[in-house]
Amino acid sequence: MVSRAYRFSLNSSRVPAGEPLLEIRDLSLRFGGIHALSAVSFTVTQGQVHAVIGPNGAGKSSLLNCLSGLYRPQQGQALLHVRDDAGESSTHDLARLRPHRIARLGVARSFQNIELFGHLTVLENLMLGRHIHMRHRLLASMVWFGPARRQEVRHREFVEEVIDLLQLQAHRHQPVSALAYGIQKRVELGRALCVEPSLLLLDEPMAGMNAEEKEDMARYILDVHELRHVTVLLIEHDMGVVMDISDRISVLDFGRLIGDGTPDAVRANRAVVEAYLGADA
C-alpha cells in the first residue's frame, strides 16, 4: 500500500464503481481478407482491472488500437460512459472518434513497443501527458511570464506526484532515449497517468522484463488501482501476473471472444485451455 498522501486524483472517471464504463459491442475489424476482430463484445466495469489475453495474432493489440482511435473498425461500437461534474452522463462511441478526441475523454494508453518522445526528458514526456488539461495560447506562451509560467508550475506539481508514485525522481531530467528499457516502460505508464485517465489501456506493460521488473510494474499498476481506483484494461502474456492482478479476464483467439469472466472461471474454461493456457495451467 502507498502511504504518502497525494493531493491529486489520478482518476477522472466519475462513473460509480461497479457500473459499466466501457461497453464493447460487436466490434469487427478487417484488413483486406483478414478478420482481426470478429464481433467482439464485452464490458469493462468501473474500478476493475480487466485483462485481455490470447495467443499471438489473436487481435488483442488491434482491439486496443480500435479503442484509442488508431484503427477504425468496420462494424460495432465501443461505448464509453462519461459523467461530468454535475452528474450528467453521456456516452461516446470510441470506434467513431479521432485519437485526440478519445484522449480528451480521458482514455490514456501505453504502447507495446515503447512510443515515448525520445529527444525529450522524462519530465517533458510527463508534462506532455498533461496536454489536454492545459491551455495553449501562442502569445501567452511566447511571453512566458504570467499565465504560461503559472500553468507550467501548476501542472508540474501534478507531474511531480506521478514521479513520486512511480519512483522516477532520479531520471527526471534525463532524455528518455538514454534510459533502460524497464524505466522507459515506467515512464510510459507515468505519461498515461498524467492524462488523469478515466480508462487506462496498457498494451503489454511487462513485455520483455525480468521477474523483478515485472513485479515492480505489477506493484505500480496495483498501487494506482488501489490508491485511485483507476479502471485498467491491459493486455499481458504472463499468466501468473494476469491471474494475480485481474478482476476480470477476456480471452481472444483468431479475433473471436472465446472466454470472459473471473480468473477462476477463465482457468476452468475448456476452450481457453485448449487455445491458449495449455493443459497444466
Binding site: 485519437p99 484522449a103 490514456a108 518522445f117 489536454i132 495553449h136
Partner: peptide
C-alpha cells in the same frame, strides 16, 4: 511551455502524440 512541447511531441512520435490528446 506546453504548445512548443506539443510540436516536439509531433516530431518525435506523432501517433503517441495523438494518443495523449
Amino acid at each position: 511551455s506546453g504548445l512548443g512541447r506539443a510540436f516536439m511531441a509531433v516530431r518525435d512520435q506523432d501517433i503517441a502524440a495523438s494518443a495523449i490528446g
